[in-house]
Design a protein around this nucleic acid. Structure first.
Length: 610
RNA sequence: GCGUCGGUAGCUCAAUUGGAUAGAGCACCUGACUUCGGAUCAGGUGGUUGGGGGUUCGAGUCCCUCCCGGCGUACCA
């Protein structure tokens, strides 16, 4: 029952930005400290061992401990050593007294580590001083280009764009948080044969009033009308229109002033639509270099490929063959069509070349659906032959389809693509119904603001939660559910913490996190479990960045919220006293900050209450 | 045909270098409250990880094979 006296406006809670870490001689993260010392111990015993495989990770089951390493079994096998004996020797040499209980050796050679409460408390104190938020920035920041969203000019953005947009934005946010240099580039579809038809439509069918009202709808209308006349299998087919479209396209490609002007206007109108959607989603790009940006670089790229013998002529076109790459055998890529025109392989190669020359990135991430796997394999392979020494990592981060309840790709009842704007509207409307029901005492404007955060958050979270490579079934009821692994559940957990501090402030008490964190005592199992879960934020963020899988973070935050509610049930906060109370308040605040920071990385906003 | 991704509880999905007894939510059953906001929590039922074979101390994960499904496969992007 929420009390209507509390009229704090709904707003996004500012995310505390942790101060950059001081130069450490040893990692501030407990897991990493254990890992480093284990690696040192392994190096003393086996000087030639590959230490990159000596890893310490969270235990799958707390009964074994908090962290474990199974690396010694692999090392022993390679060297034909007795794994348990090797584990015993290395454990005896490990200096972990300040962090852990004595190391346990289990099974065929697992090392199990159990953190000392005092070490956990010390970490919480440092976090309470604002020196870290349970993660460390990358030790070697790199430059990464993230290419995502890529909608088409003159068409409405639809559900097909949502996964790329949300995944790409989340990866960019994660990488930025970890201190990498991130460049986001929206490779919009602003060039291609469709502009011939659009130009014909613009010149012969355009309704200026309709264009003023809804530019994209009008562009879509004229495109469809002309496209029908240009399709041989349609009743409206008209060879003269087809010829006209070809002629307009040639004029555009030749730099004709009138056509270029219309084309620019179509792009500007589309950009307004993109900006509206991205504004709602909180997505931003550093660059929007569309396909047309590379027009004057295509010929040179093809020439270079030709002179290096990477492509050769076949049936009038220029192709790259990959007979020595088994999966690409019999899958040549066209780089110049028979009519001399470039295609998307050409554009992507020129784009790659430009990005390399301009930003010298260490990684380029392409976020597209899985149907483009073959295309990117070909592009990457050609590029490797073209620039065999370029140290750039090329990552095709692909994802599956969004399906409707019928297990078919999600469409409207009439079989149309669902417009993204309509989808976002519906998300907010559905969330508003729930918010209004649960919080009838709140003013409508605040209900709407909460509904906006919950509704859009639910859509984003539903998209980021599943393994990106599997298809997923779109379900309003599931994503807006108040229980289970959903955005509303996580946001609710965060608002419960806010509620504690509202209550505290209401009683006139002030809370100084750093001061409260100076003297902590962790005793209850729920307190320890929560503190340990906070520790793992670092591990998860780096896994997300490395493997391009935001679902790891979703699952982590859901577990954190679960640990928090367990703690919340078992450990009274405001009713406690002295150091116990201070400790619990610190746990609440730090949990909130990690939740809020994690949700922010996922692109979700946290309301003050809901 | 070839390539590729997938098949995990009734349903929707997880599972971190191969690692310990395959975990959640929903649904179903049983409990807990005059609540630091019950939009909650605790417990229970539920599995031959599509079938078969192999490698390994250890396989949902790697290899082989078969079955089923999605997607791709020379001038769309």
């Amino acid at each position: 029952m929420s009390c209507s006296r509390f009229t704090a406006p709904a707003r996004s809670v500012p995310i505390p930005i942790p101060a950059p870490p001081a130069p450490f001689t040893i990692s501030p993260m407990l897991r990493q400290s254990i890992e480093q010392r284990l690696q040192q111990a392994v190096a003393r015993r086996l000087p030639d061992a590959d230490l990159t495989s000596v890893l310490v990770r969270p235990c799958p089951d707390p009964k074994f401990g908090d962290y474990q390493s199974n690396a010694l079994m692999g090392l022993a096998k390679q060297r034909r050593l007795n794994p348990r004996q090797l584990a015993t020797e290395i454990a005896a040499d490990l200096q972990l007294d300040d962090l852990c209980e004595p190391t346990e050796i289990a099974g065929p050679g697992f090392l199990n580590f159990r953190l000392k409460p005092a070490a956990l408390a010390a970490m919480l104190s440092v976090a309470a001083r604002g020196e870290h938020l349970f993660f460390r920035p990358a030790t070697e920041p790199y430059t990464v280009v993230v290419d995502f969203s890529s909608p088409n000019v003159a068409k409405p953005m639809h559900v097909g764009h949502i996964r790329s947009t949300i995944l790409g934005d989340c990866l960019a946010r994660t990488l930025r948080l970890l201190g990498h240099r991130v460049i986001t580039d929206n490779h919009i579809g602003d060039w291609g044969t469709q502009f011939g038809m659009l130009l014909v439509g613009w010149k012969t069918l355009l309704d200026e009033a309709a264009l003023d009202r809804d530019p994209i709808a009008e562009l879509e209308r004229i495109y469809r009308a002309v496209n029908a006349r240009c399709s041989e299998d349609k009743p409206e087919f008209d060879p003269a229109t087809l010829e006209q479209a070809r002629a307009e396209l040639v004029k555009l490609q030749g730099g004709d002033e009138e056509n270029t002007g219309i084309w620019r206007r179509m792009i500007a109108l589309s950009q307004q639509q993109f900006d509206t959607i991205y504004g709602r989603l909180g997505v931003r790009f550093d660059h929007t270099f569309g396909e047309s940006f590379y027009n004057d670089r295509l010929a040179e790229a093809v020439t270079e490929l030709e002179s290096r013998g990477i492509v050769r002529e076949s049936e009038g076109a220029l192709l790259a063959f990959f007979d020595d790459v088994p999966p690409l055998k019999n899958q040549p890529a066209i780089v110049r069509k028979r009519d001399g025109a470039a295609n998307y392989t050409t554009t992507d190669l020129a784009t790659l070349q430009y990005r390399l020359a301009t930003w010298n990135p260490d990684e380029i991430i392409y976020v597209t659906d899985g149907r483009q796997q073959l295309h990117f394999q070909q592009v990457f392979e050609i590029f490797r032959r073209w620039h065999p020494d370029a140290p750039v990592r090329l990552s095709h981060v692909w994802f599956g389809s969004i399906l409707g309840e019928n297990n078919q790709p999600l469409k409207t009842r009439s079989g149309e693509n669902i417009k993204l704007a309509d989808l976002l509207d519906e998300a907010e409307e559905r969330a508003l119904r729930v918010v209004a029901e649960k919080n009838p005492e709140l003013p409508e404007s605040e209900q709407r603001e909460i509904a906006r955060m919950v509704g859009l958050g639910a859509v984003k979270y539903a998209d980021l939660l599943p393994n990106r490579q599997s298809d997923y079934v779109f379900s309003w009821d599931k994503m807006l559910a108040l229980n289970g692994n959903t955005a509303p559940y996580l946001l609710y957990a965060a608002t419960r913490i806010r509620s504690i501090f509202r209550k505290l402030a209401e009683s006139g008490e002030t809370f100084d996190l750093a001061a409260a964190g100076a003297d902590l005592t962790l005793a209850e199992p729920a307190e320890l479990a929560l503190a340990k879960q906070l520790q793992n934020f670092d591990f998860v963020l780096h896994a997300v960045a490395e493997e391009h899988r935001p679902n790891y973070l979703c699952n982590y935050l859901y577990e954190l919220a679960g640990q928090f509610t367990g703690f919340y049930e078992a450990c009274p906060v405001l009713r406690a006293e002295g150091t116990v109370r201070a400790t619990r308040l610190v746990l609440c605040e730090l949990t909130f900050r990690v939740l809020a920071q994690g949700l922010e990385v996922l692109g979700l906003e946290v309301p003050e209450r809901m």
